[in-house]
Structure formats: structure tokens, C-alpha cells
Design a protein around this nucleic acid. Sequence first.
RNA 1: GGCGACGUAGCCAAGUUGGUUAAGGCAGGGGUCUGCAAAACCCCCAUCGCGGGUUCGAGUCCCGCCGUCGCCUCCA
Length: 467
Amino acid sequence: MSLRVYNTLSRHKETFVPLEPDMVRIYVCGPTVYDEAHIGHGMSAIIFDMIRRYLEHKGFKVRHVMNFTDVDDKIIDRALRSGQDPLQLAQRYIERFREHMAALHVLPPTVTPRVSRTIDEIIDMVSRLIEGGYAYESEGDVYFRVRADDDYGKLSRRDIDHAVSSDRQRFGDELKEDTADFAVWKGQKTATEPAWLSPWGMGRPGWHIECSAMVRRYLGATIDIHGGGNDLIFPHHENEIAQSESCNAAPLARIWMHNGMLQLRGEKMSKSLGNMVTIAEFLDEHEADVFRILVLGSHYRKPLAYDAEIVEQAKRALARLRSGLRPPQGSLDTGPEVEHLLAAATKARVRFEQAMDDDFNSAGALGHLHDLVKAINMARDQGVGGDAFTGAQDTLRDLAGILGLQLSAAAPGASDAAPFIDLLIEVRTEIRKLKQWALADTLRDRLAEHGVILEDSRTGTTWRWQD
RNA sequence: GGCGACGUAGCCAAGUUGGUUAAGGCAGGGGUCUGCAAAACCCCCAUCGCGGGUUCGAGUCCCGCCGUCGCCUCCA
């Protein structure tokens, strides 16, 4: 079955056919690095990581490019206020970002270009735009001539006149021919801001041009998928399209994918509103898989309301998925129970793929994983073991892995305390044989106080760390 | 004001090219197992914001209304 993907440009799901068979070129807008990344960035990263993993699962070779905006007004502001070098400040947050992504098990993109290292390509592109009549210099700045682009506004579905009327009230920018025009190159205003030599004097790139230049350099004129948060549709992606398509005379991206916003207390979480939870804060308290389940548990295009309760629910859902990986308790390897389990594993695989093929419906896919967990647990209760059992667990691990879930709980044996806990359990087992229930229960309760959960079963006592 | 999205059980949420029983998770209730507990398993728990319309048939299409949210300025 073929993959269908919702395209913001057409507002429809389209059958996905890459330009080159077996190869997908994808560009995702990355962060402006002037502060700690928040879980909204994490959400976006996880969504595109899921997409990339699934594409790879489908057999595509994925060339995935994500930029770091390391030259920007806010970086400059922040740096100057604290007496730092803007590029060094950006460098530090790039490193932080990478650490956080690794902690969230987000695969590193194939290439992560930065504005500060793409200046030549940007200048080249700006020059071409000027040559083509799509941009003009004005006192050291260069502006894109929006009126020269006949299909400007096609992505965000707005017409220039509206943009103009709302813009005109805010800016009285005499340097522009038209108030809807936007900067592709900004002349240097003060000696303290980073600047590079260009045909238009010292200056730095406008915000949108970097992505156009990076796409062109690392992926070519036309790519398969261009992605980002839906808050980037206008003006950022609209302007990228304008620049790239005017420069290259080719479509920028076949498919535009946009994820919904993470909202906190009913509002979009953003740095400017100051209502944010950083990735570091989240990971201080919860595992990476919890966040991934939280994000992939709803559709990527929908807004996601974040609060303590959905974190708790995601935590439970994770524990539930993990229950499917507990060892078998029997060795039954033939019979209807085994057949049922095998059928469930096959069904899970098929349904998982169907869901994911339908515009990366990860929430539906997770549901099918839960169905498989139920079948595995039922089989365990029925005494199924052997290859059929471990095979079904492999399927679970495999499918979860496509979503980027680790599912590995902190292994009980991995702690220094493990030998002592095992010893206590041995002693308690003897106590239970003597039916000294009060003492046995006390032991269990006291261990629970230290986060060690004991579970008695016919085959003995097992323990695990509290979730 | 312009553009767009969303509204499914107590909570999260899938399903909308119309068609047998509206996924799944969490919480809750009942039961099995257990010395007890935990875990697991079994059973129960919605007619899809509201009002019209199209149709043999609509959560799924159309119109209106209400509500929530996003973009229109930097933002994943």
C-alpha cells in the first residue's frame, strides 16, 4: 500500500512519490538558537524524526537537512545584553540543542547547516534575485519584490493586498518599494552585530533566505518534503517559496508538511509569551519515551494541549506497552493460543503500516501496538513461550522502534543495589514459606518506599523499579 | 477585520474518497488469579458541539450557529 501525505500547499492528502525512486530529500526548519529549547521544539523534532524513521522503514534513503539559525536579531540582542559574542552564544545553544535531541532519541539530521557558514551561497542567491528583477538594493539592504512573484501567497492562501494593509499600519518603511516586501539582506547598523562583506556592503542575511540557500546547496532546487511548525507557514515558508522559486524557476518542495503547536495552559507555548517548559526540565522528571508517546499519541497536524495530566497518561501508556516485553511464564509452543498470538502479531504489523501510510497516523499506529501488547500478555497468561512468544515481542519492539520508542525500562540488573535486592527477595521467599505474612508484607512495603516494586507470582517473585 | 484549523465517552485520542459491532490508552465499576497486594487476563462504561439539509444510509458531505485555538510581527 502506498504512503499518503497531507500537503499544506494543496490542502489534501497526496500519494507520496519522491523525485528519485528510493530517495527522499527532506528539509525541516530548525530553531533559532538564542535560548534553551522548549518542549514545543521537542515536539516538532520528534514528529519529523518519526516521519524520517518511517520513510527509512519503507525503504527510502533519506537525506534530511535541518538548519540552525545562528544569525538573528534576538541572538544579537541576547548576546549584547550579556556581553557575549553572538556566534559563541549561538554555538553554545546549538550544542545544548544537540544534547537534548540525543536525549529524546531524535536521530541526527544528515546535515545541519548554519547561517554563519552559508553566507557565500546566500550572497549568490541574493545576487541572482537582483539580476532576475526579483529583488532590489536600498541603502545597503536588499528587499524581495513581492509584486514580481505572481503566485506569492499560494501556500498561506492570502493575497498581497491584505498583507500590505496590515503591514502598512506597523511599518512606515521608506526603504521598501512596497510594504509587503521583505528583507533578504540587512545592511549592518552597528559595529557590534555580526556582518559579512557583500556586494551591497557589510551586512547579514534576512531570516528567510537562509533556508532557500541551504535547500539549494544541500538538496537541490526541488525537494520532496519541506517541513516545520505551522506557525512558519506565513511569512517564513511563503517567503522561502517566493525566493527559491523566483531564483530557481522550479518548485521548491513537492510536499509541505506542518505540525500543530504544543499549547500550554491553553495557549501556544512560545519564548515571547514566557510560558514554556524546557526539554531539560521535562527530562529531569520524565523519560524520553514518555514525551514521545505524548507527542505521537495524537495526530501531528493537530494542536496538542500540554498539562500534567496528559504526561501522567503518557507515562501509564508507556508502562502498558512495556508490560508486553515481560518474559514468558511457560513454554507452550503449539496450539490455538500460539496461533492466536502469531495472528495478532501479523495483524499488528499490517495495521500499523496502514495507519502510518495514512499521513503518518502515529496515534492509530500506537493503538495497534496496544492491541499487540494485549495479545502478548494474554498469551503469557496462557503459558505460551518459545519462539512464537519472543517473535511477537520482537514485532512489538520492532514496530515501537519505527516510532522511535525505546521501550527498555531501566533493567533491574543494572543497579548496584540489585544483588542486595535479590538477597532480600530470597529471604522474603523463605519468610513466605513460613507464612509470616506480616513480616513479608513489611519487607515489600519498605522496598516500595525505595522505589522497588515486588511482584509475587506462581513462578516466584520479580522486582522492578517504580515507573 | 482577513486566512486557517479544531470540537468524538470523566480525561487523552483514532476513525471523515458516507455503509456490518465508533480503535487504543488513562481513570472508574465488576470478576479471575493471589495469603494479601501488584501485575496480567475477562466483562462493563460514548451515537460523535448545536440546528437544519442531501441520501436508501452521515461522526464522515452541504448550509447556519455556538465554542476553542493558530497565523496575519519574532516563533517548531
